[in-house]
Write a protein that binds this DNA or RNA. Structure first.
Lengths: 223, 223
DNA sequence: GTCTATATCTAGATAGAC
DNA sequence: GTCTATCTAGATATAGAC
């Protein structure tokens, strides 16, 4: 088992300034979280042992228990931090603007790029996997990672009545839902090997579809 | 821990006809699979112990090992059987037909009803959870549960050129992707408590969106 | 604070009686 | 074929040295 635990890219940070005697203080905590991330992402919650986390993090088991109450505490602290510090959505932080087709394309490409990242895929899988045991973490994901995107796109649709989108919130679901499902099937569930489809095709159809009511509107206006 | 293992709704089947002496033959196998299903769906792969499966199934552990090679073998056999016998998609078995709006609505409602079932949600969660450890099971899911739906809807779109759907396959992804993502967020990830939306709103917008190119076509034709 | 060593339990898998 | 009893490894969590 213990296969030569290859050097993890552990957070090395600044090596504790002046005094060489005092052992690092907050560094251990970061090491633990980094090690826990690696192991949890690969083996899931139940499949992860504290021994392994300690080994990968390069600390002793007791050190983990001095920083976190127990395995559950370590897991929830890790996942919460990941959501808030790493995966909180950025394109939801400020109002969207720009020409509709361009904006939607940029939004879709950003979304797919972010979700297509290998670490995010593993993270997404883990949150879903533990959504029965840790429902509040799944809901935190919804609030921190997804909700702003939905709300902001809805507001964009609302502020562009010329797009003739009858139900902005529902359309927002369709937009991000299509993209998220694409990642889920292609990447998380390894569907790309058996049901290939390029991102471009999906994005093109998605944009054309979302904006098609606008075309109807224009035709109507031209009368 | 062992909390009074409340009576599971075990398969009791017919209690072995005539001869009372001979112990049931294939019954045990069904009992094992039913018990394994219950435990795996609730605790995931790593979180499930063979002891617990044996207890819930009402057989001894050794009986399990006489029917299945090991834990992996039991798990894969169970999941494969569930996909093929229980969740293989039916609305993919025969060509779709009917008036577009009606057909899509019926398709969407059937899809949401099937996926909204509590057992299916747990099953879906489990397949995703183990898609890293058992990628071939995730791919089997794609092939048996999803692919026919995609293909058949694509063919329907292709056979209805008046709908003006430029890329039937991509549109099929948008249709089922939106619905699947809805279930994922609302049910699997418990989003309905914090981001409520009725199925009707999603379906209405989805159908209007998918069919909007047809309206464009009709307006064009009317000239 | 951090480590080594250990206590207690439960895991997957097997041996042998019937 | 099925069950009871058991083996061995690895799990969470803690005790005590430094």
């Amino acid at each position: 088992m213990l296969e030569q635990m290859s050097d993890q890219p552990l957070v090395q940070h600044e090596p504790s300034p002046e005094t060489t005697s005092s052992p690092p203080r907050k560094l251990k905590c970061e090491q633990i979280l980094q090690g826990a991330l690696t192991v949890f992402l690969e083996h899931g919650y139940a499949g992860t042992s504290m021994d392994r986390v300690a080994a990968v993090a390069g600390v002793s088991k007791q050190t983990i228990y001095s920083h976190f109450q127990d395995k559950q505490g370590l897991f929830t602290a890790l996942i919460e931090r990941m959501m808030i510090d790493r995966f909180r959505v950025e394109f939801g932080s400020e109002p969207l603007q720009g020409e509709p087709a361009m904006l939607l394309r940029r939004l879709a490409e950003t979304f797919l790029t972010k979700m297509g990242d290998a670490e995010f895929i593993a993270f997404f899988r883990l949150v879903i996997a533990e959504s029965a045991r840790f429902p509040e973490l799944a809901q935190l994901y919804t609030r921190t990672v997804m909700q702003y995107g939905y709300v902001n796109l809805s507001q964009y649709f609302e502020s562009h009545p010329e797009l003739h989108i009858a139900d902005p919130e529902a359309m927002s679901r369709i937009f991000f839902g299509s993209l998220g499902a694409f990642i889920l099937v292609q990447e998380v569930m390894h569907g790309k090997q058996i049901m290939a489809m390029s991102e471009e095709r999906l994005i093109d159809s998605l944009i054309a579809t979302v904006l098609s009511q606008a075309t109807v509107g224009q035709v109507g206006k031209s009368h």
